[in-house]
Write a protein that binds this DNA or RNA. Structure first.
Lengths: 185, 185
DNA sequence: CTGTGCATGTAATCCGTTACATGATTTA
DNA sequence: TAAATCATGTAACGGATTACATGCACAG
């Protein structure tokens, strides 16, 4: 009861189960393969969550297999809950950025170190973009509903990494300018 | 002992204390005023953290005031720890995005609902950008070290919200196109 | 003298991570 | 028959949020 609305592991699990019944073990791989960069989950967490979802009637054990395998399926209640969450619960914005927290305190380092930090961000972002571009090549352009929306997510990541790279490069430049300005005084 | 390196409330607190001694109460306001969108902290958490930082010798109670007020100051060890974290510990990227998690399951809704979701993202991003632009006007361009690096963070947020808005608008368009394509079959 | 703000703390609960623990089944 | 994989679970710990609880000091 009062199984909270805001927590998303629940919805990630329900979402994956809409693609068909699966065991905890199966789901764990789907989390690793497709949701790793969006909503990671550990084994420990997932088995606990499946128990709670079953207790709440949002999933059921549809079949049992060898080695104690329990195959879970989403129930109509689970499906309704997922749609409710998707359509009616406003998404919570990300509230924490370790990267930006560090930016706030970069004044504690020398300007050179601050520039190093920002240039490193640019490099990391550029590398990420390279990997994403490789990934984009391997995605089948028309294979099921996951491909349509998976591509939207991939495009977001491409744009994000581009933005991050441009910003970090600009910011390092900005620090250099401030440094020059201070030296001229 | 083994007071973990990865946790950033510690560093956020040390960082704020580099601007001068402050009580838990003072710090709480600084968290609300300047770090709310980067690293929020609750009262409960902060008082606990200050105790741990004091035990670890990274801060000290520099003065006591009325109403049991304890004014904390960062120690040389705390300052060294902050610089170590800033310069040598690689930042952890954000691993979770509820917004993108939802995108992965937008196929469970009707295409119209999916477009609504994406258009709402665009609207929210546009509103955020408006607020940030207002904020940018009020920031004194040359007032101390926080202004230099605070401006970098603000610029990041401006670029991020612009990117988000453009992406969401594009993505809604993309869903419409897929819908038209399916209708044509 | 009353309300507002200053000021600190504790308890309960939940989410997430790491590590521990166990065992069955298939495949080479 | 040994190794890899399938498969599930528990325990310990720490971080984050919400709520509870208390009380002093100052301004009007």
């Amino acid at each position: 009861m009062n199984y909270d609305d805001v927590v998303s592991l629940k919805h990630a699990t329900l979402g994956l189960l809409t693609y068909g019944p699966a065991s905890g073990y199966d789901l764990l791989q789907k989390f690793r393969d497709s949701l790793a960069n969006v909503w990671p989950a550990t084994q420990s967490q997932l088995y606990g969550e499946l128990g709670k979802l079953a207790d709440a009637g949002l999933v059921t054990v549809a079949a049992e297999g060898p080695r104690g395998r329990k195959e879970y399926a989403i129930t109509p209640e689970g499906s309704a809950e997922l749609r409710h969450w998707l359509g009616e619960v406003p998404p919570a914005p990300n509230r924490r950025s370790e990267m930006l927290l560090r930016v706030f305190f970069l004044g504690m380092l020398t300007p050179e170190q601050a520039q190093d930090y920002l240039n490193d961000r640019a490099t990391v972002a550029a590398e990420l973009q390279g990997e994403l571009r490789e990934l984009a090549k391997t995605v089948d352009p028309d294979s099921g509903p996951l491909a349509v929306y998976g591509r939207l997510a991939l495009e977001w990541a491409l744009r994000f990494s581009a933005m991050q790279q441009e910003w970090a490069t600009w910011a390092a430049e900005e620090v250099r300018r401030a440094q020059d300005g201070a030296a001229a005084d």
